[in-house]
């Protein structure tokens, strides 16, 4: 793996997740304590006017941060800002992306997003990674 500090402006960290499963969302409900049933129970999602259950926005945001986990010895996520732009449904295939926009001695600035199989951004924002 290329180290994060060797990235050049415009280059990206990227990974694609397995299709979203109900078990993913059941696990996140349990771990986070967010038991809103629109994330796990079909009838509740339909009652709320949705075509089916949707992922917690925070599940996707949590997943996205893992692009940076391998680099904990050289820095940490100091600022992480996300706007929830679209819904994530069962079986969606989500690609996580962090593109280096700028770098200084102290920080790496990334534009981050999660994109579904149709190329739509479902969450987007910024990460400022502080270097030790």
């Amino acid at each position: 793996m290329t180290s994060i500090t060797e990235l050049r402006t415009g280059e990206s960290l990227q990974t694609t997740l397995s299709p979203v499963s109900r078990m993913d969302l059941i696990k996140y409900s349990g771990a986070s304590g967010d038991f809103n049933p629109i994330h796990t129970i079909d009838e509740e999602a339909k009652k709320a006017g949705l075509p089916g259950i949707i992922a917690h926005g925070m599940w996707t945001m949590g997943n996205l941060s893992k692009l940076f986990t391998p680099y904990y010895e050289i820095g940490f996520i100091q600022d992480y800002q996300i706007r929830f732009a679209g819904m994530v449904f069962l079986n969606d295939v989500i690609t996580l992306q962090a593109q280096l926009e700028d770098k200084t001695e102290e920080h790496l600035h990334f534009k981050v997003s999660a994109i579904n199989q149709k190329g739509k951004e479902v969450i987007k924002g910024k990460v400022r990674f502080a270097l030790y």
């Binding site: 996140y28 349990g30 986070s32 599940w59 949590g62 997943n63 893992k66």
Partner: peptide, 13 residues
Amino acid sequence: RFAESIGDLHPIY
């Protein structure tokens, strides 16, 4: 449990 639920069971956690 949280790390597992976001698919990030990294040893640092």
